[in-house]
Design a protein around this nucleic acid. Structure first.
Length: 253
DNA sequence: CCGGTTGTTCAGCG
DNA sequence: GCGCTGAACAACCG
């Protein structure tokens, strides 16, 4: 389920049920469910991979992690982490992290880094990326404080789209390439969102879990790279590694 | 049928 | 206190 665009879709699906009262809240999450009973949902928000159910002066933060799912007016076999009963609607969350956080989300979150927010700010993100210096770009794209909502699919696809080697360090990126990285992380997130809603996300994967490069047709590389050690798929021919002012892999670019 | 993973947090160690 | 590693969580797909 869970990269940023999928969470934005969840928020959109639940939007019609905002401003309703919680009739009952149950589940196996370790939170104080009595806080929710009778409270009016003010709004649903999302920041990166965080889904937020906002009440007066506190909010519930749901993170679907790797395997999290949800159902609206349906139930799965297993007990939900969190089940909210509204007047005519039941919302169930499974296999997720649930936290009750005091205060207003605006105190906790910077919407300028959220790839799905209309407050997303390319300049702000560029300045955060520049600070990462000796971080590899494959790790940078998973840093939630910088690319909030980016996950492993977005990482791999963006790097392929902008022809950048996953192990390239941020400090060796030409200024123009860094801008392109930030811009395409945003653009691909919007593409991901659109394709996911049309149930055709996988169809558009160019390198993620693909055996060959769709451009040059050579066998693609699969490895667990960076400090994050996450699955990385790339083309060693098309994706360039900038290194100390020079470029390895292809001298023409 | 079993291995792998769209993710994060925390304990334990040096 | 730090960075690093590995475990834990737990469900579905191919």
């Amino acid at each position: 389920m869970p990269e940023g665009p999928s969470i934005a879709i969840l928020r959109e699906e639940l939007e019609p049920f905002a401003e309703q009262k919680v009739i009952s809240a149950t589940g196996n999450a370790k939170i104080d469910f009595t806080r929710l009973k009778g409270e009016k949902i003010i709004e649903f928000k999302s920041w990166g991979k965080h889904f937020l159910i906002c009440f007066n002066n506190f909010f519930i933060r749901i993170h679907l992690l790797m395997f999290g799912t949800y159902r609206i007016n349906e139930r799965k076999e297993t007990e939900p982490r969190l089940s909210l009963k509204l007047k005519k609607t039941e919302i169930n969350f499974y296999t997720c992290s649930v936290r009750l956080i005091e205060g207003d989300p605006n105190e906790t979150y910077d919407w300028k880094t959220d790839l799905m927010s209309d407050q997303w700010d390319a300049k702000k993100v560029e300045s955060l990326v520049k600070k990462l210096k000796n971080t590899k770009v494959c790790d940078a794209l998973l840093n939630q404080d910088v690319f909030s909502g980016s996950g492993n699919i977005i990482k791999n696809e963006v790097l392929f789209r902008i022809k950048l080697h996953p192990e390239c360090e941020i400090q060796f990126l030409p200024a123009q390439k860094l801008k392109e990285l930030v811009k395409d992380a945003h653009q691909y997130s919007l593409d991901f969102y659109r394709w996911k809603k049309a149930f055709e996300l996988k169809k558009h994967w160019q390198i993620y879990k693909k055996k060959e490069c769709p451009r040059c047709k050579i066998k693609s590389v699969t490895a667990y790279l960076g400090k994050t050690g996450r699955l990385t798929c790339y083309c060693s021919n098309c994706q360039f590694l900038y290194k100390k002012g020079k470029i390895k892999n292809n001298e023409e670019h």
